[in-house]
């Protein structure tokens, strides 16, 4: 199996993989130069060597990088980012209110649900989105069944997780990428 993968990877994918590796290298180098903000020979050479090393290190991962061009899914990606930011702000205010209220009815507890997501990266994205939103933390995701286990601070934060705004956004993102 592994041998076959190697073989097909070499024959059919080599051009695509090369292209992705070059893109990754450029992004890393740009990021390094951005952080160093000092453009003498020492910084540039160090950046070149480190970017090449990291690209080499992740060479097996490069066929997992996005296959579709960015333009097709850029609007949905931006939409997802803005939705996530808005959810974070709303949830922050909600958590602050429930923490400061004197007669707190914090009925925290666990819920488990199975969101309607097709891809594994969609599940990863949703799990991380739930965790970054204050008031809810993903405790576990079963990779085989796709069942999420989430701890929520209050009842209202837990409800609507499985078909909320974030899930719909990620579903849209999945559709725009699979086409």
């Amino acid at each position: 199996m592994r041998l076959y993968r190697r073989f097909s990877y070499v024959t059919y994918e080599v051009k695509k993989v090369r292209k992705r590796q070059i893109v990754l290298f450029m992004v890393l180098l740009l990021f390094w130069l951005l952080l160093s903000s000092d453009y003498d020979a020492q910084h540039i050479i160090t950046g070149l060597v480190l970017s090449a090393l990291v690209t080499w290190f992740w060479r097996d991962l490069s066929d997992l990088l996005p296959s579709k061009s960015l333009t097709g899914r850029l609007p949905n990606t931006i939409r997802y980012g803005l939705t996530l930011l808005w959810e974070i702000i709303l949830a922050n205010i909600a958590v602050a209110r429930s923490l400061l209220s004197s007669q707190s009815k914090l009925d925290s507890g666990f819920v488990s649900f199975k969101p309607d997501l097709q891809t594994s990266w969609g599940q990863v994205l949703l799990a991380n989105s739930i965790t970054i939103t204050p008031g809810t933390v993903t405790i576990d995701v079963n990779p085989d069944t796709g069942v999420f286990l989430v701890h929520g601070l209050t009842e209202s934060m837990r409800e609507g997780l499985e078909d909320g705004r974030l899930v719909r956004c990620i579903q849209r993102l999945e559709r725009s990428r699979s086409k």
């Binding site: 914090l106 009925d107 507890g109 488990s112």
Partner: peptide
Amino acid sequence: SIPVKDIS
């Protein structure tokens, strides 16, 4: 808070 899961 109850450690038992609610299955929703």
